[in-house]
């Protein structure tokens, strides 16, 4: 039954489960093609994929806090101590 369904193509639940593998280029050729065929036909899953891409892009803009000058001074002191030791 499952095999039959796969041959026919993916259902939305399956497509959503494959999004991360798709974006990592980790799908087999056959699954990649099934995924793209599903996305081409399904506006909801297209929306979902787009939103995951947006989420990744936003996360990519998160920057760590700036280096605290005091932390830097402490590290340099630590380094000098280590060199002297």
């Amino acid at each position: 039954m499952r095999l039959f369904r796969r041959r026919r193509g993916l259902v939305c639940r399956q497509a959503v489960a494959l999004v991360t593998d798709y974006l990592d280029g980790a799908l087999s050729r056959a699954d990649h093609d099934r995924f793209e065929a599903h996305i081409a036909d399904c506006p909801h899953c297209r929306t979902y994929l787009e939103q995951i891409r947006t989420t990744i892009a936003l996360a990519g803009q998160v920057r760590p806090d700036d280096l605290d000058p005091q932390a830097q001074d402490e590290l340099i002191a630590l380094y000098r101590q280590w060199r002297a030791g």
């Binding site: 369904r5 259902v11 939305c12 639940r13 399956q14 959503v16 489960a17 909801h44 899953c45 929306t47 979902y48 787009e50 939103q51 947006t54």
Partner: peptide
């Protein structure tokens, strides 16, 4: 899991599909 099972029907299609973030996104 990533997306809750109840978002999909027994046929595997969306019951509660995502709404596009088009406005001012």
């Amino acid at each position: 899991p990533g997306e809750q099972a109840e978002r999909f029907g027994s046929d595997g299609g969306w019951v509660d599909p995502p709404v596009p973030w088009t406005d001012h996104v």
